Structures are given as structure tokens and as C-alpha cells.
Computed example of a mutant assay.
Amino acid sequence: MALYLISFEKGAMDHIPAEDFPDVGKAAHAVIRETKDAGVYVFGGGLSYEDGDVEWGVVAVDGRVTDGPFAESKELIGGLTIVDVPTREDALKWAAKIAVACRCAQDVRKFGDDPER
């Protein structure tokens, strides 16, 4: 088994009309329930970027903390799901289901092997 990060960028769902969000939410939750029922779900959720929300930040190597991402950051994660599956093909199948539910493309990346896991 291997861990895979399935994610999409902040703003990837901006094309969805506000009136469609309840249906998108139901579809997304249904897929996540399916991952849990299949026993492959590890963790997931959407990230908050609300105005005034400073519940995130960057900690530099000197320990200094700043609100927000590095200035050179071009990509912020909008949402993510981590699955534990036997193959890349399995991860891609889950990503396809999430993409359909969320109506946006998904990035799939394998975590490095951890011998202590």
C-alpha cells in the first residue's frame, strides 16, 4: 500500500455557479464516504482562505512566523484527500471520482516511502 495526495488548487472551483455548490458538496461527500467505506481514506478536507482568516502562516527556517504564503508561491491548495491504496492506478481512479464530484481537475502525487510506516 502507498499513500497518495489527491488535491486541487485554490480557485479551481470558481467556475461553479453558487447555486450548484450544494449539489457539488453532496457529490464530494458521497465520494469521501465511498473512500471511507473502501478503507482507503486517510485524511482530507478543504482549506480556508476567508477574508481575515489568519489560521495559517509560514514558519521560516529562523523560526519567524508570517501570515500567508511565501510571496513567490504561485499555487495554493484548495482541497485535498489522502488515500492509502495498492497502486497508482487505484489512486487515479479515486482522483477521477473526486474530479467528477468537485467539477475540477485533481493533482495526484505519491508520498515517499516511509520504512517506519
Results as ranks from 00 to 15, higher is better:
residue 57 G to I: 09
residue 82 I to N: 02
residue 25 G to D: 15
residue 70 F to L: 12
residue 50 E to Q: 09
residue 7 S to M: 08
residue 21 F to C: 03
residue 16 I to K: 02
residue 101 A to L: 05
residue 30 A to R: 04
residue 112 G to P: 14
residue 71 A to S: 12
residue 49 Y to K: 00
residue 62 D to H: 10
residue 43 F to A: 08
residue 74 K to V: 13
residue 89 E to G: 04
residue 5 L to P: 08
residue 61 V to N: 12
residue 106 Q to K: 01
residue 85 V to W: 01
residue 102 C to Q: 13
residue 40 V to Y: 07
residue 40 V to K: 00
residue 39 G to E: 13
residue 25 G to K: 05
residue 75 E to V: 14
residue 5 L to Y: 10
residue 98 I to N: 07
residue 62 D to A: 06
residue 71 A to R: 05
residue 92 L to P: 09
residue 88 R to L: 14
residue 76 L to C: 06
residue 25 G to M: 14
residue 42 V to H: 02
residue 28 A to Y: 15
residue 52 G to F: 08
residue 67 D to N: 14
residue 32 I to W: 09
residue 100 V to E: 15
residue 101 A to M: 05
residue 75 E to K: 07
residue 95 A to Q: 08
residue 57 G to W: 12
residue 104 C to D: 09
residue 66 T to A: 08
residue 33 R to G: 12
residue 95 A to H: 06
residue 40 V to S: 00
residue 45 G to M: 04
residue 43 F to C: 03
residue 43 F to R: 00
residue 68 G to S: 05
residue 105 A to W: 13
residue 110 K to H: 09
residue 44 G to R: 00
residue 12 A to W: 14
residue 28 A to D: 15
residue 11 G to F: 06
residue 19 E to R: 08
residue 82 I to A: 00
residue 49 Y to F: 15
residue 17 P to F: 08
residue 20 D to I: 09
residue 49 Y to C: 01
residue 94 W to S: 00
residue 80 L to K: 04
residue 54 V to S: 10
residue 44 G to P: 07
residue 85 V to T: 06
residue 50 E to A: 09
residue 112 G to W: 15
residue 72 E to H: 08
residue 111 F to N: 02
residue 13 M to W: 13
residue 33 R to M: 13
residue 34 E to Y: 11
residue 94 W to L: 01
residue 106 Q to L: 01
residue 5 L to A: 07
residue 57 G to F: 10
residue 19 E to K: 10
residue 11 G to L: 04
residue 13 M to K: 04
residue 7 S to H: 07
residue 95 A to M: 06
residue 92 L to S: 04
residue 50 E to P: 12
residue 73 S to K: 02
residue 90 D to Y: 04
residue 4 Y to K: 00
residue 99 A to W: 12
residue 75 E to D: 12
residue 95 A to E: 10
residue 47 L to E: 10
residue 114 D to V: 04
residue 22 P to D: 09
residue 20 D to L: 08
